[in-house]
Simulated assay, not measured.
Amino acid sequence: MLINLSDVLSDQHKTVEETVRLEMEEIRLQSGTYPIISKEPVHVKVEHIRGKELLITAETRLSVMIPCDRCLEDVKREFELNCVKHVDVGLSDAELTEELDESNFIDGYHLDVDKLLFHEILSSWPTKVLCREDCKGLCNVCGQNLNTGSCNCEDTGLDPRMSVVRDLFKNFKEV
């Protein structure tokens, strides 16, 4: 969704405050494509600070289905996004100072809300997703989900070279 910023950037410097719908239906990353299963409208406020500096705030909630890292069952993950960006549309990314954010989601006089929120989702993306804390994962032989039942595969046993380390943990629980 594009929001026109011409009122904010003109000489009148009117504040733009809109509630728009998020057009993104899925999140595409190198690790895969994740569907957005629920989303709320995005409340966006753009204020003029000075010159071509703007203060952009955006708030929304959405839910994404992400597979569990151990058993591959889908997990619903909630994202509550409250982002505040201080940008200067007159500067290129190479000229930015420390107090300014990148403005790659602004093209001319238009703010791309989906692009702004994609970067926020990306920065808050979880490093590990588990369906539950005690997820047992998949059998490494047959692929059976060990949370739903056991399999009839042979136990490959533990590496005998690791017996010394195993004994250390058995004998000294404090380690």
Rank of each mutant, 00 (worst) to 15 (best):
100 L>Q: 12
108 G>E: 08
94 A>C: 00
81 L>M: 15
110 H>K: 02
111 L>D: 15
109 Y>N: 08
105 F>W: 01
72 L>M: 11
90 G>S: 13
89 V>A: 01
77 R>K: 14
110 H>W: 02
96 L>K: 14
99 E>Y: 06
79 F>S: 06
114 D>A: 11
116 L>V: 02
113 V>R: 09
91 L>I: 09
116 L>G: 06
99 E>C: 00
96 L>Q: 11
93 D>L: 10
109 Y>H: 01
91 L>Y: 09
106 I>E: 10
105 F>H: 05
79 F>V: 06
88 D>L: 06
73 E>P: 03
111 L>C: 12
112 D>E: 04
102 E>M: 00
105 F>Y: 00
101 D>T: 04
75 V>I: 08
72 L>A: 04
109 Y>P: 04
93 D>R: 05
103 S>Y: 00
85 K>Y: 09
98 E>D: 12
107 D>G: 08
104 N>S: 10
91 L>G: 11
91 L>K: 15
98 E>I: 03
96 L>H: 06
87 V>D: 11
93 D>G: 02
73 E>I: 00
116 L>F: 07
95 E>P: 06
97 T>C: 01
106 I>F: 10
78 E>L: 06
115 K>I: 06
85 K>S: 10
102 E>Y: 11
91 L>S: 07
78 E>S: 03
85 K>F: 01
89 V>T: 05
106 I>D: 15
83 C>Q: 14
81 L>C: 13
102 E>Q: 11
109 Y>G: 01
79 F>C: 03
76 K>A: 02
75 V>L: 01
115 K>L: 09
114 D>Q: 06
